[in-house]
């Protein structure tokens, strides 16, 4: 990670953590404006922050991680595009899903290590370990997909990557939310406990800007039209210099 990106993350992380799910535009937008976040994607010479798409990933992912109550990706994309471009918002939701899955995983691991049953922490039971390991893999896939899409956006044409990334992140929501709630037991089902801020958003984001059926069909049609023999050469050409 570059130094400016690390600085961005170090500024944004504690602020989003503090504001959290209860943040509202009326009450807290000025705090985000102080850091220039709504102008994240506006070029520097137009008075914006001049962030690239990996900067966007960093900020959007943290918004997901802390279940931020303000839809900062929508604000940033609107300022940059003048409208909410479907593809860009699909990318934004992918990043938020990646962050929220990591946060739900962290909560679940901490809970499994703390909660004792049968005289030992839940995390000592192999069945629980194996479930959480599967969850970690899904969270990892969503994060890598978000990064792949961000890189493609920085290169230019990212239609294929955004479709693939949103679809992959959508699919990760299923395992992630299921395991998070299962490991937490009844407490995770309460309003008092923080898990629902993440899982309810994850279910919402999976549907927004293209559900699984939508993106898998578009991606499938694209791959089939290019033909079997073009699949691998196209895939590698998209990342090669």
């Amino acid at each position: 990670m570059s130094d400016t990106r690390r600085m961005l993350a170090e500024m944004v992380d504690p602020l989003f953590a503090e504001l959290g799910p209860d943040a509202t535009e009326a009450k807290d937008l000025s705090r985000l404006e102080q850091l220039g976040l709504p102008l994240l994607l506006v070029p520097e010479d137009e008075g914006g922050f001049g962030g690239d798409w990996i900067d966007a990933l960093t900020v959007f992912r943290l918004a997901g991680y802390h279940a931020l109550g303000i839809d900062i990706p929508a604000l940033a994309v609107e300022r940059a595009d003048g409208g909410q471009c479907e593809q860009t918002m699909a990318f934004a939701r992918t990043c938020q899903i990646a962050g929220a899955l990591d946060a739900a995983l962290a909560l679940s691991v901490a809970y499994a290590n703390e909660r004792q049953q049968f005289g030992r922490p839940l995390g000592k039971f192999q069945a629980v370990q194996q479930s959480l390991a599967g969850f970690a893999c899904e969270a990892a896939a969503a994060n890598c997909a978000a990064m792949g899409a961000a890189q493609a956006l920085d290169r230019g044409d990212a239609g294929f990557e955004i479709a693939a990334a949103k679809l992959r992140a959508n699919r990760a929501v299923e395992v992630g939310t299921t395991v998070a709630h299962q490991v937490h037991g009844a407490i995770g089902f309460t309003q008092e406990y923080a898990l629902h801020h993440l899982t309810r958003r994850l279910w919402q984001w999976r549907s927004e800007y293209g559900n699984d059926a939508y993106w898998s069909r578009r991606l499938g049609e694209h791959v089939i039209e290019d033909g079997a023999d073009a699949f691998w050469p196209n895939l590698t050409a998209r990342t090669d210099p």
């Binding site: 997909a145 792949g148 294929f160 089939i224």
Partner: peptide, 20 residues
């Protein structure tokens, strides 16, 4: 359409795994 969706899903997974 069902095959389209299956191809799309498997392509997305291949793309992600390659990056990982």
């Amino acid at each position: 359409p069902e095959l389209d969706m299956l191809v799309g899903r498997l392509a997305a997974e291949a793309w992600t795994l390659r990056l990982m």
